[in-house]
C-alpha cells in the first residue's frame, strides 16, 4: 500500500475526527455542566443540515446556508432547552434518556412533515470544488480540507472561550460547583440556555458541512450521535480536551480500520473470507476501542474524579 494512499486516508480520518469534535463538543459541555444526557443532539445536527440545504438552495449562497444552520440549530436548541430540557436537570439519567429519545421522535417526524421524506442535496460551493494538490501525487478535495480547517478553528476558539472569557470562567465554575456560582449571583438558568444553544449551533454547523458530502435526510443525526457518545465517553465526560482527542482517535480508528484491516486479513486468510471478517471488525473497531478504554480507565481518558 502506497504512502500517498495512507496519507489520503489519514486526512479522511482527520476530517471525520474534526466533524465528530464539532458534534461532541456540545454534548460533553452539556453533560459536564448540566449533568444531562442529550440524545436529541443528533436532531440538532439534522436541523442544521436541513436549514443549510433550504437556505442555500433558496439564496444560492453556501455561506448563507452555513449561517442559517448555526442560527436554526441554536434557536431550536434554546427552544427545547426552555420548554423541555430544563425540567430534566434534576432527574435521573433514565428520565433524561427517555425524554430526549421522545424529542428525537418529535423532531424527526416534525422535519419529515415539513420537508417530506425525500432527501435534500447541498452542492459544494464553486470556490471549494475541485482538489488541492499537495505535490508528490497527493491530491485531496478542497471541500474536505475546508472542513478540517473549520473544525480546527472551532476547536481553538472553544479552548480560548473556555480558558479566557468570562463565559468560559462561568462554564468551568458551573462544572465544578453549580450551587456556589448561583449563590454568587450568576443567572444559572440563562447560562444553561446559552451553553445548550452553543452546543446545538456547533452540531448544526457539523450537520450542514457534512450535508454536502452525504444527503440531507431525516435520521441522519442518530448514527453520528452514537459516535459522538463514543467520543465523549472515551475522552472523559465534560472535558473539551478529551472530546478533541477522543474525536481524532475515533475518526482515525474507524477510517484506518476500514482501509488497513482487509489487506491485513488477506495476508493469512483467503480473500473471500477475509473481506467480510475484516469489514465486520472495522465497523466494530471503535466500539471495541471504547470498551477497552472504559475497562482500563472507567472514567475515560481525561475524565475527572466525578
Amino acid at each position: 500500500m502506497s504512502t500517498v494512499l495512507i496519507l489520503e486516508q489519514a486526512l479522511n480520518g482527520l476530517q471525520f475526527g474534526v466533524m465528530l469534535f464539532m458534534m461532541s463538543a456540545g454534548l460533553t459541555l452539556v453533560f459536564g455542566v448540566m449533568g444531562l444526557i442529550n440524545l436529541a443532539h443528533g436532531s440538532l445536527y439534522m436541523i442544521g443540515a436541513f436549514a443549510a440545504a433550504v437556505v442555500a438552495t433558496w439564496t444560492g449562497s453556501f455561506m448563507l446556508g452555513l449561517i442559517a444552520s448555526l442560527a436554526a440549530a441554536a434557536a431550536m436548541g434554546a427552544l427545547i432547552e426552555l420548554v423541555v430540557i430544563r425540567r430534566l436537570y434534576d432527574r435521573d439519567h433514565l428520565d433524561q434518556v427517555l425524554a430526549t429519545f421522545a424529542l428525537i421522535l418529535i423532531l424527526s417526524e416534525g422535519t419529515r412533515y415539513t420537508f417530506g421524506s425525500l432527501p435534500l442535496y447541498l452542492n459544494t460551493p464553486g470556490w471549494l470544488s475541485g482538489v488541492f494538490d499537495f505535490g508528490g501525487g497527493l491530491v485531496y478535495p478542497k471541500y474536505r480540507l475546508a472542513i478540517i480547517f473549520v473544525g480546527l478553528i472551532i476547536a481553538a476558539g472553544l479552548f480560548l472561550l473556555i480558558a479566557k472569557t468570562r463565559l468560559g470562567i462561568r462554564i468551568r465554575a458551573g462544572e465544578s460547583d453549580r450551587e456556589m456560582i448561583a449563590a454568587l449571583g450568576v443567572d444559572i438558568s440563562k447560562l444553561y440556555t446559552i451553553i445548550f444553544a452553543l452546543g446545538a449551533s456547533l452540531a448544526g454547523l457539523a450537520g450542514a458541512m457534512v450535508g454536502v458530502l452525504e444527503s440531507v435526510e431525516v435520521g441522519m443525526g442518530e448514527p453520528v450521535l452514537i459516535l459522538a457518545f463514543v467520543v465523549i465517553v472515551i475522552g472523559g465526560i465534560g472535558s473539551i480536551k478529551g472530546a478533541l482527542i477522543g474525536s481524532l482517535l475515533v475518526g482515525m480508528t474507524d477510517t484506518m480500520g476500514r482501509v488497513l484491516l482487509p489487506p491485513l486479513f488477506s495476508q493469512f486468510m483467503p480473500p473471500v473470507d477475509a473481506v467480510p471478517v475484516a469489514s465486520a471488525l472495522a465497523s466494530m473497531s471503535i466500539y471495541i476501542l471504547m470498551a477497552i478504554v472504559l475497562i482500563v480507565r472507567p472514567a475515560g481518558l481525561f475524565g475527572g474524579a466525578k
Binding site: H93, F229, I237, P276, Y287, A291, L294, P298, A299
Partner: peptide
C-alpha cells in the same frame, strides 16, 4: 466495572458491536 452514564454507554457500545457484526455477517 463502570456505573452511571458510563454503564449506559458501554452497554450501548456492546449492542452496536453485535449490530455491526450481524450487518457484515
Amino acid at each position: 466495572r463502570t456505573s452511571g452514564i458510563f454503564f449506559i454507554m458501554i452497554t450501548l457500545a456492546f449492542g452496536q458491536m453485535f449490530y455491526y457484526f450481524a450487518i457484515s455477517w
